[in-house]
């Protein structure tokens, strides 16, 4: 490896970064090419295709015919779509703040030297590597109304069964709980990593007993972690809007439409027996637009806060 021996004064790195030479542009595009090729072919292309299908009357193998805004107008009159949108919003509101805040809380809690800290941390992190399918299946095992573990424990304690699967609000709860279980570890690991950059003295102050600790945490530590929080809110938001496996396996969108989400609805319409590609794509595209808008909003708010 070449040792960096040249003094910065000789060439201005700043200058080099500001004005790109034609050679640099060529190199840049060259380095980006594999990436852009893969993204363009395997993601952007299909996405454009999905957009086109949203304006067609296309069902499975029949030829699609352009139908203008028919799909959209059907969408706006579709009760199930609105229900799915509402459910997705509820799910997001229930998972994002709690997921991020608990991640922060646990990170602060387990940041300090503590006997067995490594074990505690590992236990909270582990769900990160557990796939969403496994998470969902374990969720089914836990919340199964008749043979599930949680109702079994309740029965052993002499309590009544809880209708996790046949009550809408409880079904939503079970889905939220499993989602949080699989996500909090990620928030926590990112926060812990971020805390390593915070001045140890500040952290120490936040860890002293008493009312002052809370003040320091809230007034100093949390603002210092703002970029991390921003990142986590953003990815959690995206993940929540895209929720699929957990719902599909644990509740199948039911009971009734209580846990039907936008993606499961799009999937059911497009891939389910109806194979209404056009309509399924419409739901998907609307979802894409919503997530995109929320992301932009977040980015803009962040930019304004940073300025």
């Amino acid at each position: 490896m070449t040792a960096p021996t040249v003094a910065p004064a000789e060439v201005s790195p700043q200058g080099a970064a500001m004005t790109g030479s034609p050679g640099q542009a060529r190199a840049a595009w060259g380095m980006l090419a594999p990436n852009l090729l893969l993204i363009g072919v395997f993601l952007a292309g299909p996405l454009a295709w999905a957009f086109a299908m949203a304006f067609q009357d296309k069902r499975s193998f029949g030829k699609g015919t352009w139908s203008g805004l028919d799909n959209l107008s059907r969408l706006f009159g579709d009760d199930v779509f609105w229900r799915a949108l509402l459910n997705t919003a509820i799910f997001t509101a229930a998972t994002v703040p709690v997921g991020v805040l608990l991640g922060l809380g646990l990170a602060l809690l387990m940041n300090k030297a503590l006997p067995g800290r490594g074990v505690f941390r590992t236990i909270v992190y582990l769900p990160i590597v557990v796939s969403s399918l496994v998470t969902s299946l374990v969720g089914l095992l836990l919340f199964d109304e008749s043979v599930g573990i949680i109702n079994g424990i309740l029965r052993d304690l002499g309590l009544a069964d809880v209708s996790w699967q046949s009550d809408g609000a409880l079904a939503m709860t079970s889905v939220v709980v499993m989602t949080l279980w699989s996500r909090i570890g990620f928030s926590m690991v990112i926060y812990i990593a971020a805390l390593q950059d915070v001045d140890p003295q500040v952290i120490e102050a936040a860890e002293v007993d008493g009312a002052r600790a809370w003040q320091v945490t809230r007034r100093v530590v949390v603002p210092l972690l703002r970029p991390t929080t921003f990142f986590l809110v953003l990815v959690n938001l995206i993940w929540s809007f895209q929720v699929f496996d957990v719902v599909y396996v644990m509740t199948n969108g039911g009971p009734g439409y209580s846990t039907t989400m936008l993606v499961t609805y799009a999937y059911d319409e497009g891939f389910g027996p109806a194979r209404n590609f056009g309509y399924g794509a419409t739901v998907g595209v609307v979802l894409f637009v919503i997530i995109g808008a929320l992301t932009l909003l977040q980015l803009r708010r962040n930019a304004r806060a940073e300025a």
Binding site: D144, E145, Q165, S166, G254, G256
Partner: peptide
């Protein structure tokens, strides 16, 4: 019938 055996039950 158990309430968990309706038409959309995942099991």
């Amino acid at each position: 019938v158990p309430r968990s055996t309706s038409t959309k039950s995942p099991t």
